[in-house]
Design a protein around this nucleic acid. Structure first.
Lengths: 137, 137
DNA sequence: AGTAAATTTGCAACAATGATGCGAAAATTT
DNA sequence: AAATTTTCGCATCATTGTTGCAAATTTACT
């Protein structure tokens, strides 16, 4: 059984053409993807709505996760652990390259804890680092 | 001279009606604001374009700053230091309440440094903490 | 394998968000 | 107070994301 098929089945998703191809696209690309990347760069011609719904279903099942950005663009990423073992959402730091604007999951860098002022109860923390990635130096 | 007028002049911006009122709205509200908040909750009836351009000019001058969010909504915030002393962009942590979804600048909590893998050169880091704020407990 | 049930797709239509050009209006400079 | 610069607001357009629904596909069942 193909890898993509396995991932979909494991996550109780019907194995459809678009889902398989989009999942494959995630597996092939190193960094995070935006909706537009998938629409344009897959080579395929999915309906916009299909792409949205596919991404939604992946997020719901925890296969991909969202990455916050300042510029109002949603990025989705498939984490190493997610696609291999399931729902390992220890939250890691994300890196966005100012040069090539690639977005990368630093799976091994965990978001540090911070001391909040009185009254605030933390639940979840996200951290995004901008800078220059290895490929651009 | 009024406070808002002073802030605008100090930042080399013409003192116009909309800018004054939007700035005042920022000063009055505790948390961060989205474009929609300003359009709807000011009571005023600014043109959508005017609001966009006003916010843009504020961002350019460093009077307000953007806060990254996962859900593709841009939030703008006026920091204590910014409006008093100028461009104090030491980066602080942001807090988003899961209950009331208010977004707050934790001016006194600085984003901690993290050790990145080889090859990555950090330039700037952002951190957003989700949880419950003091008002919602 | 073949059929029924459930899910997904793609189209149309719509809503929200953001950008640009340009003449009119307002603010600043002199 | 006139000239210059900047900003406003309207029209228009592009992009992004959502929803409803019929047709197509996938899955489950015998």
């Amino acid at each position: 059984m193909k890898q993509v098929e396995e991932i979909l089945k494991r996550n109780h998703l019907s194995v459809t053409d678009s889902r398989q191809k989009i999942m494959q696209f995630f597996l092939n690309s190193k960094g995070a993807l935006a909706h537009a990347d998938i629409e344009k760069k897959t080579g395929e011609n999915f309906d916009r709505v299909t792409v949205y719904r596919t991404l939604q279903s992946f997020v719901e099942k925890g296969i991909i996760h969202l990455i916050p950005t300042k510029d109002n663009s949603i990025k989705y990423a498939l984490c190493k652990d997610d696609c291999e073992a399931g729902h390992h959402h220890d939250n890691h730091v994300h890196f966005i390259c100012d040069e090539c604007s690639k977005t990368i999951c630093l799976d091994d860098v965990t978001v540090p804890q911070v001391k909040l002022p009185k009254g605030f109860t933390p639940q979840h923390a996200e951290m995004v680092v901008n800078g220059i990635c290895g490929d651009c130096k």
